[in-house]
Design a protein around this nucleic acid. Structure first.
Lengths: 142, 142
DNA sequence: CGCTCACCGGACAGTCAAGTCCATTTCCGG
DNA sequence: CCGGAAATGGACTTGACTGTCCGGTGAGCG
């Protein structure tokens, strides 16, 4: 169970932005200080989030970064996807190219269950949930 | 959801060995051909599994690798642990140094649930389960 | 207009997992 | 005892991830 550092950084930055009063932008420098992310690297990450449509950036005086959408509509999977990884589900824990319900590896079923749990969680949880601390309960059991 | 390549290789190799008649060793070269793992790299992995006490190695004519214990007593977590990773649970998905039940990050609870599910699965599942295809049901729901 | 502020974006460096190569050691069979 | 078969282990390469540096670009303000 592991999320790479870039993804961790992205989540920290997004959380910080979500906590700000709506519309007020934060400068990369301030974000860096607040989150402990190396400033130069943070810039790279922020760009990916902008490109991904999750953030809006404004240059010059009074500029900075702000959420492009309401926190309720920004899912964890959007953030993880924007910074590039962590979402391609391992179809097979053995790394077999061909492994699905019709030609399963010996662990396919139970491994898929875990995968589903993770993806469903990332799809279900939004920035707003992180803000409030309240988390959506799972809609139903599989 | 992701297990690194080395871990995938280790699982493939162990599965192959578990399928063999008990006690008959397999050569690295044959294992490599059977599993598609690069031979030189497979050797490295096998050594880690030997060092970890999961395999026994014999050199020379008629040598090779064989399980050091019964398949029922070799857990997935043993294999993953022996090849070095995948088991250190991310204490915090944000990468915060301090994050536990007493000082949780906004996602601590739900993230821990996923982590627990994974670790419990890796502790519960053995090589024997992989062989038979039968999988132990989870002891209880959380 | 012109200055400053903040993001933009490319070039570059360090680290680690993944993988290769080869000499060495150890063992078995004849 | 000898030759080959097999694991062992160190040195090396490669590429992705992480991180730094710095010049460029565009926006706002006086």
């Amino acid at each position: 169970m592991h999320v790479n550092q870039t993804a961790q950084y992205a989540l920290r930055a997004m959380l910080h932005l979500a906590a700000l009063p709506k519309g007020s932008p934060a400068r990369a420098r301030d974000l860096s200080r607040a989150t402990g992310i190396p400033p130069a690297y943070l810039s790279k990450i922020m760009r990916r989030l902008v490109t991904g449509g999750l953030l809006r950036a404004r240059k010059g005086h009074g500029g900075g970064f702000a959420l492009a959408r309401r926190p309720e509509s920004i899912r964890l999977r959007d953030v993880l996807g924007a910074v590039g990884g962590e979402l391609e589900r391992d179809l097979c824990i053995f790394g077999n190219g061909r492994c699905d319900a019709s030609a399963p590896c010996p662990l396919h079923h139970s491994w898929s269950e875990l995968n589903d749990a993770f993806h469903s969680w990332a799809r279900r949880t939004t920035l707003a949930d992180m803000k409030t601390g309240r988390l959506r309960r799972r809609a139903g059991r599989r």
